[in-house]
Design a protein around this nucleic acid. Structure first.
Lengths: 231, 231
DNA sequence: CCGCAAAATTGATTTAAGTCAATCCTGGGA
DNA sequence: TCCCAGGATTGACTTAAATCAATTTTGCGG
């Protein structure tokens, strides 16, 4: 089976894009524009959701903190992605926290409006269902990787995913510059900072990546796919 | 935060239970009863879904196999649970395989009928959306655990989950007898058979569990929760 | 543009858990 | 009921990755 980034990437942008006019109007009407500075926490694990977020600019990380204070990054959202609606749908607390990795611009739909939207927009409901199904597959893949793959493979996959997250809108795929702390990357790959750095060094020696200060420039995303490929 | 098994357990039974009469009739009309002997593979990872399964009797494991042939058990379904509909909704291949752990009786709804059902049953669609949201939270928790927790904690949680899966319908909660191969349990906990057995030995010495042949009798599910609790 | 605290890197050491190997048990089939 | 192959268990050893510790780099705030 060939590598496909879709197995590890949600791409929820299409939800809003292909909505019928009537539903789109309702959706836009319910939106409120908000700003979030870098490091701003949008919601905390264990709290009940206040609404839905659609990211217009910037990046947001979803993470869990264990009792020793160690973080596990579950997912990173890029521009265009919609999030925070899941726990709202099933009336549960957020299973994880969300924080801005960069200065963000966000369209926010509050709980009440979102609930009304769901009643009035059957196409939206179906689209959310489809999206959630795909997101689920992504998580299944992630569980498998964490439970089975060694750190080199995990880091390779993480970088390949970040390549997707940090590439611009243009079709020119590389080289992509990833601007994220070693700590966040390590926690995304499920390893320690030191171990991450050692793997990065290997990749540098193999000329798969290059670094510029703390930025990582991905030279050969295909090579990363090859390392991460387990099927 | 107190331990709650719901964080690790889907409990999709309610989907069918509280459906309006009209939708329930449609659903029942679309169902076909099938049998599956122990070890029968219902669907294979990478193939396209043929329909939806509602488990009437027995247990089914969902698992992925990596290129070295090693399995990761993602989830175990018990009587009453509905599965296999996710990839159908988003038109994707199954991300994992499904196999009967015991002789099973299953209600099956084929792809075409299920699609018709979705168009005619808005309540069902909403219920599936809610269920999927909850399942997602469960997976998020699982990713965190695998990426951060040591093997003792993982095994404790796995046993606590199996306690839930193998308890009967009665409200008498314990002692529950878990009848599953060491291999399946190890793959569920994301460890090797030998390591699993060593942890089981500790739990036996601590009188948290007892074994009878290959069966595991869970004496103190609360103690397992305590070990598994990370929040 | 300078200083410095925080972040990144590298090296040394420890440790948790996997692997390999040998033996024991057990439950299903003849 | 007994046999025995596959499953479970235990012990010895290896290894991957975490932790600890010291040093270098970097980019932000004044």
């Amino acid at each position: 089976m060939a590598f496909s980034i879709d197995k590890y990437h949600f791409n929820s942008e299409s939800i809003i894009e292909n909505l019928p006019d009537a539903e789109l109007r309702l959706l836009k009407g319910a939106m409120k524009e908000i700003e979030a500075k870098k490091n701003k926490i949008l919601f905390r694990e264990g709290t009940f959701p206040k609404g839905v977020y659609i990211l217009k600019k910037g990046k947001v990380k979803i993470y869990k903190t264990n009792k020793e204070g160690k973080q596990a990054v579950i997912y990173i959202f890029r521009k265009g992605e919609i999030f925070g609606y899941r726990p709202l749908l099933c009336n549960e607390a957020h299973p994880a926290s969300g924080a801005a990795l960069e200065d963000c611009r966000i369209s926010f739909i509050d709980k009440k409006n979102f609930s009304l939207l769901l009643d009035q927009c059957p196409v939206l409901v179906r689209k959310l269902l489809v999206n959630l199904s795909h997101e689920f597959s992504v998580l299944v893949n992630q569980v498998m990787i964490f439970s089975q793959q060694p750190v080199r493979e995990r880091v390779a996959l993480t970088l390949r995913i970040l390549n997707e997250k940090f590439r611009g809108d243009s079709k020119i795929i590389f080289p992509v510059t990833v601007n994220l702390s070693r700590e966040d990357i390590a926690h995304y790959a499920g390893t320690s900072v030191e171990t991450l750095v050692r793997v990065l060094r290997q990749f540098k020696d193999d000329e798969i990546i290059r670094t510029q200060g703390r930025k990582i420039i991905i030279l050969k995303p295909k090579a990363l796919e090859k390392i991460a490929e387990f099927y």
